[in-house]
Design a protein around this nucleic acid. Structure first.
Lengths: 68, 68
DNA sequence: AGGAAAACCCCACTATATTGTGATTTTGAA
DNA sequence: TTCAAAATCACAATATAGTGGGGTTTTCCT
Protein backbone atom coordinates (compact mmCIF):
# COMPACT_ATOMS: atom_id res chain seq x y z
CA UNK A 1 0.00 0.00 0.00
CA UNK A 2 3.01 2.17 0.68
CA UNK A 3 3.92 2.13 -2.97
CA UNK A 4 0.41 2.94 -4.04
CA UNK A 5 0.18 5.91 -1.69
CA UNK A 6 3.40 7.34 -3.02
CA UNK A 7 2.20 7.23 -6.58
CA UNK A 8 -0.86 9.22 -5.60
CA UNK A 9 1.08 11.69 -3.55
CA UNK A 10 3.73 12.33 -6.17
CA UNK A 11 1.20 12.78 -8.91
CA UNK A 12 -0.79 15.19 -6.77
CA UNK A 13 2.31 17.25 -6.14
CA UNK A 14 3.07 17.34 -9.84
CA UNK A 15 -0.36 18.79 -10.40
CA UNK A 16 0.18 21.24 -7.55
CA UNK A 17 -3.04 20.57 -5.72
CA UNK A 18 -3.61 20.10 -2.01
CA UNK A 19 -5.00 17.03 -0.31
CA UNK A 20 -8.21 18.91 0.42
CA UNK A 21 -8.59 19.87 -3.22
CA UNK A 22 -7.93 16.38 -4.48
CA UNK A 23 -10.30 14.88 -1.94
CA UNK A 24 -13.00 17.32 -2.93
CA UNK A 25 -12.49 16.78 -6.65
CA UNK A 26 -12.52 13.03 -6.22
CA UNK A 27 -15.56 13.21 -3.97
CA UNK A 28 -13.95 11.46 -1.04
CA UNK A 29 -13.21 12.41 2.55
CA UNK A 30 -10.00 14.18 3.41
CA UNK A 31 -9.17 11.62 6.06
CA UNK A 32 -9.52 8.83 3.58
CA UNK A 33 -7.11 10.50 1.21
CA UNK A 34 -4.44 11.24 3.79
CA UNK A 35 -4.51 7.65 4.94
CA UNK A 36 -4.19 6.42 1.39
CA UNK A 37 -1.22 8.63 0.69
CA UNK A 38 0.48 7.42 3.83
CA UNK A 39 -0.18 3.81 2.96
CA UNK A 40 -2.31 3.40 6.07
CA UNK A 41 -5.44 2.52 4.20
CA UNK A 42 -6.95 -0.38 2.36
CA UNK A 43 -9.20 1.59 0.05
CA UNK A 44 -12.04 0.15 -1.94
CA UNK A 45 -11.69 -0.14 -5.68
CA UNK A 46 -14.29 2.57 -6.15
CA UNK A 47 -12.23 5.03 -4.12
CA UNK A 48 -9.04 4.01 -5.85
CA UNK A 49 -10.51 4.54 -9.28
CA UNK A 50 -11.98 7.90 -8.37
CA UNK A 51 -8.66 9.18 -7.12
CA UNK A 52 -6.70 7.85 -10.05
CA UNK A 53 -9.17 9.25 -12.52
CA UNK A 54 -9.12 12.65 -10.86
CA UNK A 55 -5.35 12.67 -11.14
CA UNK A 56 -5.45 11.73 -14.80
CA UNK A 57 -4.08 8.30 -14.05
CA UNK A 58 -5.29 4.91 -15.15
CA UNK A 59 -4.81 1.42 -13.88
CA UNK A 60 -4.28 -1.57 -16.06
CA UNK A 61 -3.80 -5.26 -15.52
CA UNK A 62 -1.49 -7.60 -17.31
CA UNK A 63 0.22 -10.92 -16.89
CA UNK A 64 3.02 -10.67 -14.39
CA UNK A 65 6.33 -10.04 -16.02
CA UNK A 66 9.47 -11.92 -15.17
CA UNK A 67 11.97 -10.53 -12.71
CA UNK A 68 15.34 -11.07 -14.31
CA UNK B 1 -16.38 -3.07 -11.98
CA UNK B 2 -17.89 -5.19 -14.70
CA UNK B 3 -14.70 -4.98 -16.70
CA UNK B 4 -12.57 -5.85 -13.74
CA UNK B 5 -14.64 -8.90 -12.92
CA UNK B 6 -14.35 -10.18 -16.44
CA UNK B 7 -10.58 -9.97 -16.40
CA UNK B 8 -10.51 -12.08 -13.26
CA UNK B 9 -12.99 -14.59 -14.58
CA UNK B 10 -11.31 -15.04 -17.93
CA UNK B 11 -7.90 -15.46 -16.41
CA UNK B 12 -9.25 -17.98 -13.92
CA UNK B 13 -10.75 -20.00 -16.76
CA UNK B 14 -7.48 -19.91 -18.64
CA UNK B 15 -5.82 -21.44 -15.61
CA UNK B 16 -8.64 -23.99 -15.32
CA UNK B 17 -9.40 -23.49 -11.68
CA UNK B 18 -12.75 -23.18 -9.96
CA UNK B 19 -14.01 -20.22 -7.98
CA UNK B 20 -13.62 -22.21 -4.79
CA UNK B 21 -10.04 -23.03 -5.61
CA UNK B 22 -9.13 -19.48 -6.48
CA UNK B 23 -10.85 -18.15 -3.38
CA UNK B 24 -8.98 -20.62 -1.22
CA UNK B 25 -5.62 -19.91 -2.85
CA UNK B 26 -6.13 -16.18 -2.54
CA UNK B 27 -7.33 -16.55 1.02
CA UNK B 28 -10.66 -14.86 0.49
CA UNK B 29 -14.27 -15.93 0.86
CA UNK B 30 -16.04 -17.63 -1.98
CA UNK B 31 -18.89 -15.16 -1.82
CA UNK B 32 -16.51 -12.28 -2.19
CA UNK B 33 -14.97 -13.80 -5.28
CA UNK B 34 -18.22 -14.59 -7.02
CA UNK B 35 -19.41 -11.05 -6.50
CA UNK B 36 -16.18 -9.65 -7.83
CA UNK B 37 -16.40 -11.76 -10.97
CA UNK B 38 -19.95 -10.62 -11.55
CA UNK B 39 -19.02 -7.01 -11.04
CA UNK B 40 -21.31 -6.78 -8.04
CA UNK B 41 -18.58 -5.92 -5.61
CA UNK B 42 -16.45 -2.99 -4.60
CA UNK B 43 -13.50 -4.93 -3.26
CA UNK B 44 -10.76 -3.49 -1.12
CA UNK B 45 -7.34 -3.04 -2.61
CA UNK B 46 -6.00 -5.80 -0.42
CA UNK B 47 -8.48 -8.27 -1.82
CA UNK B 48 -7.88 -7.09 -5.36
CA UNK B 49 -4.14 -7.52 -5.08
CA UNK B 50 -4.43 -10.96 -3.53
CA UNK B 51 -6.63 -12.19 -6.33
CA UNK B 52 -4.49 -10.69 -9.05
CA UNK B 53 -1.33 -12.06 -7.53
CA UNK B 54 -2.82 -15.51 -7.20
CA UNK B 55 -3.73 -15.42 -10.87
CA UNK B 56 -0.25 -14.32 -11.88
CA UNK B 57 -1.51 -10.89 -12.82
CA UNK B 58 -0.19 -7.51 -11.87
CA UNK B 59 -1.66 -4.04 -11.77
CA UNK B 60 0.17 -0.95 -12.84
CA UNK B 61 -0.62 2.71 -12.97
CA UNK B 62 0.29 5.20 -15.61
CA UNK B 63 -0.75 8.55 -16.97
CA UNK B 64 -4.00 8.28 -18.83
CA UNK B 65 -3.49 7.81 -22.52
CA UNK B 66 -5.37 9.75 -25.15
CA UNK B 67 -8.46 8.35 -26.76
CA UNK B 68 -8.07 9.13 -30.43
C1' DA C 1 11.26 34.22 13.75
C1' DG C 2 6.12 34.75 12.70
C1' DG C 3 2.07 33.36 10.60
C1' DA C 4 -0.93 30.86 7.46
C1' DA C 5 -1.76 26.89 4.90
C1' DA C 6 -1.20 22.13 4.56
C1' DA C 7 -0.83 17.80 6.53
C1' DC C 8 -1.60 14.74 10.30
C1' DC C 9 -3.80 12.70 14.50
C1' DC C 10 -7.61 11.07 17.41
C1' DC C 11 -12.11 9.65 18.21
C1' DA C 12 -16.63 8.15 17.45
C1' DC C 13 -20.21 7.12 14.20
C1' DT C 14 -22.16 5.21 9.85
C1' DA C 15 -21.88 2.60 5.81
C1' DT C 16 -20.58 -1.29 3.67
C1' DA C 17 -17.26 -5.03 2.54
C1' DT C 18 -16.29 -9.76 3.94
C1' DT C 19 -17.56 -13.92 5.65
C1' DG C 20 -19.98 -18.62 6.56
C1' DT C 21 -23.92 -21.48 6.14
C1' DG C 22 -27.21 -23.75 3.68
C1' DA C 23 -30.32 -23.85 -0.19
C1' DT C 24 -31.02 -23.29 -5.19
C1' DT C 25 -29.80 -22.95 -9.90
C1' DT C 26 -26.81 -23.62 -13.76
C1' DT C 27 -23.41 -26.04 -16.34
C1' DG C 28 -21.24 -29.62 -18.69
C1' DA C 29 -19.85 -34.14 -19.40
C1' DA C 30 -21.06 -39.23 -19.59
C1' DT D 1 -31.49 -37.03 -20.12
C1' DT D 2 -29.08 -37.66 -15.67
C1' DC D 3 -26.06 -36.61 -12.37
C1' DA D 4 -22.30 -34.26 -10.02
C1' DA D 5 -19.68 -30.29 -9.90
C1' DA D 6 -19.73 -25.48 -10.23
C1' DA D 7 -21.77 -21.23 -9.67
C1' DT D 8 -25.32 -18.27 -7.73
C1' DC D 9 -28.43 -16.69 -4.18
C1' DA D 10 -30.32 -15.32 0.47
C1' DC D 11 -29.47 -14.22 5.00
C1' DA D 12 -27.30 -12.89 9.22
C1' DA D 13 -23.17 -11.69 11.63
C1' DT D 14 -18.66 -9.50 12.01
C1' DA D 15 -14.92 -6.71 10.42
C1' DT D 16 -13.46 -2.74 8.65
C1' DA D 17 -13.59 1.15 5.27
C1' DG D 18 -15.27 5.85 4.96
C1' DT D 19 -16.54 10.00 7.18
C1' DG D 20 -16.71 14.52 9.93
C1' DG D 21 -15.13 17.37 13.64
C1' DG D 22 -11.82 19.48 16.19
C1' DG D 23 -7.25 19.82 17.79
C1' DT D 24 -2.01 19.45 16.92
C1' DT D 25 1.99 19.42 14.22
C1' DT D 26 4.58 20.35 10.14
C1' DT D 27 5.76 22.98 6.13
C1' DC D 28 7.12 26.80 3.89
C1' DC D 29 6.97 31.46 2.52
C1' DT D 30 7.96 36.41 3.74
Amino acid sequence: MERFGNIIKERRKELSITQRELAALAGIGINTLTKIERGEANPSLKIVLRVLDTLGLEMNIKIKSMNL
